[in-house]
C-alpha cells in the first residue's frame, strides 16, 4: 500500500466500513430474530399450557373428558380427530397428487404444461375458509345424500371395517373433514412432487425408455426410487399443513368432543377446538387447556415439518451433485 490517502478520503473509507458493519449487524440481528420468534412462540405456548399439565399430568393427553364447567379437560378427542382427518386427507391427497405430478411431467403436451401447472397451483392459493364454506354448503349435503348412505349400506355391512361406516349419515363429521383436507393439501404435495420429479437426470429416464420400458414402469422403477426422499418430504409437508389446518375443518367437523370408531360421526380437531372455543374460555384452567392443545399441535407439526425439510434438503444436495 504505497498510496498515501488524504484525510477526507480515509475518513470516507472508514465511514463506509462502519456502515458496512452496521448493515451486516442489522441483517444478522433480524435473522436471529427469526430464531427468537420461534423460541418465543414455543415459550408462550408452553407457559400457557403449564397449569393444565400441572393439574392433570400426562393423563391430559389420553383423557376424553371435556367439561369446561367441572374443569375436567382431556386432549384425546382433539388429538384423535387431528390425526384421523389428516390420515384420510393423506389417503385421498397422495394418490391424486401422484397422478397429477406424473401427468404434468410425463404425459402432458409441453404447451399445456404451464397453464395446467398454474391451475393446480391456484388450488393452493384458495384460502382455507373458502374450502370450509364450500365444504359446508356443497360437499357435506352431497355426501349426506349420496356417498354416505352408499357407504353405510355397502361397506357398513362388512364385518370389521363396517364399524368405520356405521351410524346415521349426517354429512358433517370426520370423513367429510378428511375429504376437504385432502383436496386442500393435494396441490402442495403435487407441486413438490412435480419439482422433485424434474430433478431426475434425463439420461436415467431416457435409458429406461431406451430399453423399452413403458411410462408407468419408468415412473415406478426409475423416477420414484430416485426421488423417494423428496417425495416423502413433500408428503410430510402436506401432512404438516393438514395437521394444522383450521378453517376448512371447523366448518364441517361437527364439533363433538367424542371419539367414535365410525368415520361418519362428528368429532373435533385441535385447531377446530381452538377456533370455536378460544374467545369464550372462562377460567384460567380452560384457557390453559386450550393453550395446551395449541402447544401439542405446534410440537406435532414442528416434528413433521422439520423431518420433511430435512428430507427435501437431502434430495436437493443429491441433485446438486
Amino acid at each position: 500500500m504505497g498510496v498515501s490517502l488524504s484525510v477526507p478520503t480515509r475518513r470516507r473509507i472508514d465511514r463506509q466500513r462502519l456502515l458496512d458493519a452496521a448493515f451486516r449487524a442489522t441483517t444478522q440481528s433480524f435473522a436471529l430474530g427469526v430464531l427468537v420468534l420461534l423460541g418465543g412462540i414455543m415459550v408462550a405456548l408452553a407457559a400457557g399450557a403449564l397449569p393444565v399439565f400441572r393439574k392433570f399430568g400426562w393423563g391430559f393427553l389420553t383423557s376424553e373428558a371435556w367439561n369446561p364447567v367441572k374443569e375436567n379437560f382431556g386432549a384425546w378427542p382433539a388429538i384423535y380427530g387431528t390425526l384421523m382427518t389428516s390420515l384420510i386427507a393423506m389417503l385421498i391427497g397422495i394418490p391424486l397428487a401422484l397422478g397429477i405430478a406424473v401427468f404434468l411431467t410425463e404425459l402432458c403436451p409441453p404447451i399445456m404444461r404451464r397453464p395446467i401447472g398454474t391451475l393446480i397451483e391456484l388450488l393452493a392459493a384458495i384460502p382455507s375458509i373458502i374450502y370450509g364454506i364450500w365444504g359446508l354448503f356443497v360437499l357435506a349435503p352431497f355426501l349426506q345424500l349420496t356417498v354416505q348412505p352408499a357407504l353405510v349400506s355397502t361397506l357398513g355391512e362388512l364385518p370389521i371395517i363396517g364399524a368405520l361406516f356405521a351410524g346415521p349419515p349426517l354429512g358433517l363429521g370426520v370423513l367429510t373433514a378428511g375429504v376437504i383436507l385432502g383436496f386442500m393439501v393435494l396441490p402442495f404435495i403435487a407441486s413438490v412432487m412435480r419439482d422433485v420429479f424434474a430433478t431426475v437426470p434425463p439420461m436415467l429416464r431416457e435409458s429406461a425408455y431406451g430399453v423399452g420400458a413403458t411410462t408407468a414402469e419408468v415412473v415406478r422403477h426409475i423416477v420414484l426410487p430416485y426421488t423417494r426422499v423428496g417425495v416423502i418430504g413433500g408428503i410430510m409437508l402436506g401432512l404438516g399443513r393438514a395437521l394444522g389446518e383450521t378453517m376448512a375443518v371447523t366448518f364441517v367437523i361437527g364439533n363433538a368432543h367424542r371419539v367414535k370408531t365410525s368415520l361418519l360421526a362428528p368429532g373435533t380437531t385441535i385447531s377446530a377446538t381452538l377456533a370455536n372455543e378460544f374467545t369464550e374460555a372462562v377460567g384460567d384452567l380452560y384457557t390453559s387447556a386450550l393453550f395446551a392443545l395449541g402447544f401439542i399441535l405446534f410440537v406435532i407439526t414442528f416434528i413433521v415439518l422439520a423431518a420433511a425439510k430435512l428430507m427435501l434438503l437431502r434430495l436437493e444436495q443429491r441433485a446438486a451433485k
Binding site: A31, L32, V34, L35, L37, L38, G40, I41, A44, L45, A47, G48, L237, G240, R241, L243, G244, E245, T246, S271, L274, A275, F278, L290, F291, G294, L297, F298, T301, F302, L305, A306, K309
Partner: peptide, 22 residues
C-alpha cells in the same frame, strides 16, 4: 435460520394467533 424459517412458513396460523393473543 433457513431451517426454522421454512418451518415457520408452514406452521399452523392459528398458533400464531394464539401467540399474539398472549
Amino acid at each position: 435460520v433457513r431451517f426454522i424459517n421454512d418451518v415457520l412458513l408452514s406452521a399452523p396460523s392459528i398458533i400464531i394467533g394464539l401467540f399474539v393473543y398472549g
